[in-house]
Simulated assay, not measured.
Amino acid sequence: MEPHSQLPSSLSVDDNNVRMECYLRNSESVNHVFLNCDLASLIWGSLERQLNLVLVPVDDILLKLQGWWVHSSGNSALAALTRLLPTIVCWELWKARNKACFKDVVTTSTGLLHQITLQLHAVGHAFPFRCTSTGGATLRGQGLVPFLVYPRHRTIALSWSCPARPYVKLNIDGSSLGNPSDSGGGGLVRDDSGCFLCGFSSYYGWQTNMHAEASALLEGIQLCLSQGYGHVLVELDSLTLLNVVQGRSKCLWRIFPIVSAIQAKLERGVFRLQHCYRELNAAADALAKHASNMRTSSEYHAPTYLPDILGILQLDREHFPYIRTTRWISFSSP
Rank of each mutant, 00 (worst) to 15 (best):
E48M: 12
A137N: 09
H301G: 00
V89C: 08
G194E: 11
V168S: 09
L233C: 14
F34P: 03
P303S: 01
R295K: 15
L78S: 07
S332R: 03
A96F: 10
G135A: 09
I116S: 04
Y229N: 14
S297P: 04
A214S: 14
R317H: 03
S76A: 05
D60Q: 06
G220N: 06
P151H: 09
A79G: 03
L177R: 11
S333H: 13
N243Q: 15
C37V: 04
K265L: 15
N209P: 00
S330E: 15
R152T: 08
P128K: 11
A157P: 00
C198G: 06
L158S: 05
W91G: 00
A261Q: 15
L217R: 05
E299R: 14
F331G: 03
F320Y: 14
C198D: 09
I221S: 03
L55F: 03
L84S: 12
H32S: 01
E267I: 06
D308F: 02
W68G: 02
P307H: 07
E213K: 06
D316S: 07
L84V: 05
G136E: 07
G67L: 03
H4L: 13
I116T: 05
W160C: 07
G184D: 12
C251L: 03
L93D: 01
H71F: 09
R272L: 14
N209I: 06
C251S: 08
P180Q: 02
P334S: 13
S41R: 10
S202R: 11
G205C: 03
R25M: 08
E48D: 03
S238L: 06
C131Q: 15
L85Q: 04
C90N: 02
V245D: 09
T87I: 05
N98H: 11
R254M: 06
A96R: 05
L158M: 04
L233A: 12
R25P: 00
A96M: 09
V270H: 13
E48Y: 02
S27N: 08
R278Y: 09
L241S: 12
G178L: 14
Q119I: 00
K103G: 06
P166N: 04
